[in-house]
Computed example of a mutant assay.
Amino acid sequence: MQKVIYYTKEICSLCEEAKALLIMFQQKYPFELEERDIYTNDAWLEKYQLLIPFVQINETTLNCEQLNMESLEHALAKHIDKV
């Protein structure tokens, strides 16, 4: 099963909205969601602190400025077959 990596942190309304979109799209595009809290890893914190929520699907990435319903579905459709 394809994996989607989702970088987040606690108390982040944008992150909560992004996670809701990801969960919604799991009904249409089956994938494993790996959630990574940037405060549990110094490298993630340094790399993603200004970009979260940040989603990675294979080589495709979406940061907080790029992440919306349309861009996320386009990225998922590119890498994951619909149910």
Rank of each mutant, 00 (worst) to 15 (best):
M1Q: 09
M1G: 08
Q2V: 12
K3R: 08
V4N: 04
Y7I: 00
Y7P: 02
T8D: 10
T8H: 02
K9T: 13
K9C: 06
I11Q: 14
S13T: 14
C15M: 00
C15L: 05
E16G: 07
A18K: 07
A18L: 12
A20N: 02
L21N: 04
L22S: 12
M24K: 15
M24D: 15
F25R: 08
F25W: 10
Y29T: 03
P30I: 02
F31I: 03
F31L: 05
E32P: 08
L33P: 12
E34G: 04
E34C: 06
E35W: 09
R36F: 05
R36E: 00
D37R: 09
I38T: 06
Y39N: 11
Y39S: 12
T40G: 11
N41S: 11
N41M: 07
A43L: 06
W44Q: 02
W44K: 07
L45C: 07
L45G: 00
K47V: 10
K47M: 10
K47W: 07
Y48T: 00
Q49T: 11
I52E: 07
P53H: 02
V55S: 00
I57F: 01
N58K: 15
E59W: 01
T60S: 13
T60Y: 05
T61G: 04
L62P: 07
L62I: 02
C64A: 14
C64L: 10
E65S: 10
Q66S: 08
Q66M: 09
Q66T: 03
L67S: 00
L67P: 06
N68S: 15
M69Q: 15
M69W: 05
E70V: 14
L72V: 15
L72A: 13
H74C: 07
H74Q: 11
A75G: 05
L76W: 06
L76F: 01
A77H: 05
A77S: 15
A77C: 09
A77I: 01
K78W: 14
K78I: 11
H79M: 02
D81M: 12
K82T: 14
V83D: 03
